[in-house]
Every structure is written in C-alpha cells, then in structure tokens.
Amino acid sequence: MVLVFQSSGVVMSRSWSHTLDSCNTQPACVLPADVVPFASAWQCGLMLLRDPVHLVSPRAVAYWTVRALPAWIIVLAGELLWLSSPPDDTGPRVVVPAVTVLLAAAHLIVMPRWRYRVHRWEVTSTAVYTQSGWLRQERRIAPLSRVQTVDTERGPLEQLFMLANVTVTTASAAGPLRIHGLDRATAGALVAELTEATSHSQGDAT
C-alpha cells in the first residue's frame, strides 16, 4: 500500500520514515521550503523528549511491591479455597495456582523495579515535567503559569514507608500531574518550591 503524506498541500514521498533515520546525513531533507516552520530541525534532527532529572525515593520499590500484594493474595486465596473443595480431578487444580504464583512473582519482581526506572520528575523555572507508568508510560508537562493547586498526600501505606505523593493540578480535568513515591522531605520542599513559583503568576490559568 502506498501511503502519501501531505503537508500544507505538498505531497511528500513515502520515504518519510527513511528521512527520519537518515536526517543527520541529509540535513536538507526532502521537504519543500514552504513547510519549513514544521519541518525544520524538529522533524529532521530526531529530537526526543529526555527523561526528567529526578528519580523518586528507592523505598518506592518496596511500597509498590506491598501495594500490589493484596490483589494477588485474594486471587490465590480464592484458588486455594477451590483446591480444598472435594477432590475429583486434581490436575488443573494444582496447575492453576502454580501458574498464578509464577505470574504474581514475576509481576511483583518486575513491576516495581520497572516503575522505579520510569517514575521521574523535574521542575524548571517555567514548567513541571513528570513521567510515570511501566508498560504504558505517560509524560506530562504543564507550564508553571497554568498551575492551580499543589497538594501533598500521605496514605497509610505511604506513611509506613515514609513516603508522600505530590499532585499538581491545572484548570483542565485531564491534566493533574502526580508524583508518587517521594520521600517526605523532598515532597515538602517540592510543594514549597511550586507554591512559591506559582504565586507569581497572574490570571485564572484557563
């Protein structure tokens, strides 16, 4: 199938993806002059979004592990209950909990460590930048001038691990930036910094 890319009415060839790869050696690209505002360095120079600078607290790994544990325990308990009912065909009854234990172990070992590598945050003089998730990752960027509230929260489990999370909301219902698994001192300092930075901005931030 031939796919045609259109940019400001100019038809580009299907070699666009090659262009991306080979842009550094062909800085002029194949783009005509009238689409320059879009096609300049951004499209050709393989610009990428870098990770935010700061990692969260290492204790977050334990916290995520413990938080994911109850769901697996409930599933396993249900299966064990089923296993202890009158026996007739023990084959699948042993296999299913065994598979569950394997899955749970994999999830509990991989997920928190993966999350720890992904969950990052950064505050500059103009913007807040967060990254979260593991299989599905999301990066959120909001300008400080549009920040409306800054909260910090410590749930019971987070208190146990001496952690806190910080939520930065904007006027959009779609865009709260959450940073989970910060240690308390960092969270406190971050809230103070954000409150100070946003108190200077004007307007209703819509």
């Binding site: 499209q43 393989l46 990428l48 990770d51 913007a127």
Partner: peptide, 24 residues
C-alpha cells in the same frame, strides 16, 4: 519527533528545556 515538533509549534518554548538530540 512529529509530536514534539507539533507541541513546540503550538506552544513555543514549553518543551525547550526537555528536548534532547539523542535517545536517553
């Protein structure tokens, strides 16, 4: 790259600090 170009064109400067030339 297209997404970043689009974001940068729509709101110039916001992403500037977070862009890099290579994959990290």
């Amino acid at each position: 790259p297209m997404a970043l170009a689009l974001a940068e064109q729509a709101l110039p400067g916001l992403l500037g600090d977070f862009l890099t030339a290579e994959a990290t």
